[in-house]
Amino acid sequence: MKQNKYDDSGFFANYSQMPRSIGGLDAAGEWTAFRALLPELRDKKVLDLGCGFGWHCRYAREQQARSVVGVDLSENMLERARAMTNDSEIEYRHLAIEDIDFAAEEFDVVISSLALHYVERFDIICRKVHHCLISGGTFVLSVEHPIFTALAAQDWHYGLQGEKMHWPVDDYHNEGPRQARFLDNDVIKYHRIVATHINALIESGFRILKLSELQPTQEMLAKNPAWQEEIRRPMFFLIAAVKD
């Protein structure tokens, strides 16, 4: 199923008011960890899967990437991305992640930020990314952490006074769709365990370089005490892999 909530006007309006939609990468809590996994981008051809407003595409060009292609299923997202971009070496394409069909070894780096948990067949995407990467090319991705996606409610267990007691984890090994609430809308996310992510990459021909579950730093906690929740349970899972 190719889900496209972002072309719903109400949903898109709500999304546009999120801090990361206004403030860009610096307002995205996981950005520092994601950036640390990226290879040198100078002179590289980059593909961004689920590019949204194009923040990562423009960052890649700021780092002197040779060219960038961003794909997204949402026309609303792409319209905003194009409006925010003045760079002939960034191309935005209206395309579902599931439908990518690029030439062999077309890119040096493929990135995807918080998009692949909306895609049903992660293994197929891994094979397609492997196909379009050069030998030695890097695939960097972030998804919601499997501990976060295991239960559709994606919420704390609360005490009698409304205090957050613990984060419930259940049905962890029961992979598949979860109907979650996001921005006052029902959305389908796909729960996959940690092993499924890693094994899909390995079986597609990748070597894992590094993993991150985004443990907040003291600097992050000082700037935003809400990050204390991320010490209690991980929300993000980030992977860097290379095509040997």
Rank of each mutant, 00 (worst) to 15 (best):
V68H: 03
W55T: 02
R61D: 08
G54Y: 09
W55N: 09
A65L: 04
R66G: 02
D43R: 02
V69R: 06
C51V: 07
V46S: 03
Y59S: 06
R58M: 13
V68P: 00
G52M: 08
Y59I: 03
D48Y: 02
R61L: 13
G52Y: 06
Q64R: 00
L47E: 05
R66F: 12
R61A: 10
V69K: 03
G70S: 14
Y59H: 10
Q64L: 08
G50F: 05
G70F: 07
R66C: 09
V69P: 03
C51Q: 04
G50P: 02
A60H: 02
R66L: 14
G50K: 00
D48V: 06
Y59T: 04
D43I: 07
R42N: 14
W55E: 11
K45P: 13
K45G: 12
C57V: 14
S67L: 08
R58L: 11
F53N: 08
L49G: 06
V68I: 13
Y59V: 06
R61E: 09
K44A: 10
R42W: 11
V71N: 12
R42M: 14
W55A: 13
C51T: 11
D48T: 07
G70Q: 13
G70A: 15
V46D: 03
Q63M: 08
A65R: 00
G50N: 01
D43C: 10
V46C: 03
R66N: 07
K44P: 01
V71A: 15
D43Q: 13
L47K: 01
K44G: 02
G50W: 03
S67G: 06
K45N: 15
D43H: 12
A65C: 03
V69F: 11
C51G: 09
D43A: 15
S67D: 11
V68M: 07
C51A: 11
W55F: 15
L49F: 04
V69T: 15
H56M: 14
V46T: 05
A60E: 05
V68D: 07
V68Q: 04
C57D: 13
C51I: 04
A65D: 01
D43G: 11
D48Q: 05
R66P: 00
R61I: 09
Q64W: 01
S67N: 03
C57S: 15
G54L: 10
A60G: 07
W55Y: 15
A60P: 01
Y59A: 11
Q63W: 01
D43L: 09
Q63P: 00
E62K: 02
E62I: 00
R42T: 15
K44T: 12
H56N: 11
H56L: 15
L47T: 05
G52C: 10
R42E: 15
S67C: 12
Q63R: 05
V46Q: 02
H56G: 06
R58A: 10
A65N: 00
V71L: 14
L47P: 05
G54N: 10
A65F: 04
V68C: 11
S67E: 14
H56A: 14
K45I: 12
G50C: 08
H56I: 12
K45W: 05
R58C: 08
V71D: 14
G70V: 10
C57A: 15
V71T: 15
D48E: 09
V46K: 01
G70H: 10
G70T: 13
V68F: 09
V46W: 01
Q63T: 01
Y59P: 00
Q63F: 01
C57N: 08
L49V: 04
Y59Q: 08
